[in-house]
Computed example of a mutant assay.
Amino acid sequence: MAVVVVTDSSASLPTELTDELAIAVVPLHVLVGDRTVREGIDPIDIDYAADSVTTSAASPGELREVYERALERSGGDGVVAVHISRQLSGTWEAGRQAVRDMDASDKVLLVDSLGAGLATGLPTLAAARRAHAGSVLDTVFEAAVAAATRARTFVLVNRTEQLRRGGRLSTAASFFGSELVTKPLLQIVEGRLELREKVRTRSKAYTRLVAAAVDAAGAEGAAVAVQHLGAPEAAETISGQLRDLSPGIGELIVAEFGPALAVHLGVGAIGVVVVPGGCA
């Protein structure tokens, strides 16, 4: 058989890729009033600015069920589970509890992606491609860890209030002052979302976002992902600029943020993930 790769729905991977590489996806939860909705499974109609909307991690029981099915499907070859940063969600910790409760825990290896969105998705792809090629469990695990370690993530949001309210942004960002006259450019550092810089206008913020991504990509080639929430034209423009300014990009994915991340980022958010060296 072959090693099976698992991730969670925050990874935002296009369905065609998860289907092609047989990646198992565990849904995170969006809490809308008194309803709990499974991302990617249940229909979701959300006012992303509402205080009553929040998110929660997958439970140990849900994760264990998926891990056990994946292990059975692998024929005993093993499972690599790549999850959203433990600094941003309780999913990785729930996964660790699920593994502890399993009889074959040595066959299920967890990876903290140190990121979110396609910063989780690209390391998942790196692992799944190794698994698809027939690599052994340790090699698949190491591919995910290496891609997660190399990844650089930059996020532009209109306001940081939703991130601060949900506890996803370092309190160091409180020195922003009025966000009505600035556009916060954030980055993920060691799994934490932190301020990179503040920019006066949206157009200048896009320029700084692209410059940061090009610098991270370097000259040796990279895999790149652009994500957005309700800003497809901006995402396409940024993708084109990245192609022009960094011709070594070997893979570029454009996708929308899923609801579990969108709740915290707000409409208009744009993110760029760069994995130098790619995810082959």
Rank of each mutant, 00 (worst) to 15 (best):
L13V: 12
V273D: 11
Y67M: 12
D45M: 04
K107A: 13
D215F: 05
F257A: 09
E256S: 13
D215T: 09
A24M: 08
S105A: 15
L186S: 06
E20V: 15
A255V: 13
L209N: 05
E68T: 09
T18I: 05
G230I: 07
G218T: 01
A235F: 04
A11Y: 04
D138K: 06
A205H: 06
V157G: 03
L137R: 13
L63F: 15
V26L: 12
P27L: 13
T7Q: 00
A219F: 06
A219I: 06
G278P: 03
E220I: 00
V275Q: 00
V224C: 02
L137K: 08
V181G: 01
H228C: 04
P123S: 10
L163S: 12
V79P: 02
E142F: 01
E68I: 03
G61N: 07
Q97F: 15
G266F: 01
P60M: 09
T160W: 10
P60C: 09
E236K: 04
L193A: 08
G230P: 09
T54Q: 03
T36G: 04
S9L: 05
Y206F: 14
V32Y: 01
P43C: 07
S239K: 04
Q97P: 05
G61Y: 08
G40K: 15
C279I: 15
L252I: 06
L261Q: 12
I270N: 06
A146V: 03
A219C: 06
A219D: 14
V32I: 15
H83W: 10
K198I: 10
G278C: 08
D215A: 14
A147S: 02
P247Q: 09
G33T: 15
Q187W: 11
T201V: 02
G177D: 07
I253H: 03
M1G: 14
L229I: 04
L13G: 11
K107L: 15
R150T: 04
V189K: 15
S178V: 05
M102A: 15
G240W: 07
F175Y: 09
A127H: 02
A262D: 03
T171S: 14
A269D: 03
L163N: 14
V275S: 01
R192D: 13
W92T: 08
S178L: 11
R86W: 04
G90K: 07
T160C: 14
V6T: 06
G121Y: 04
T153F: 04
A57V: 11
G218M: 02
R86N: 11
Y206C: 05
R73Y: 00
T7N: 02
E256P: 05
V272F: 02
A212V: 05
P123V: 06
S246C: 14
G230C: 03
L245C: 08
R35Y: 13
T124A: 07
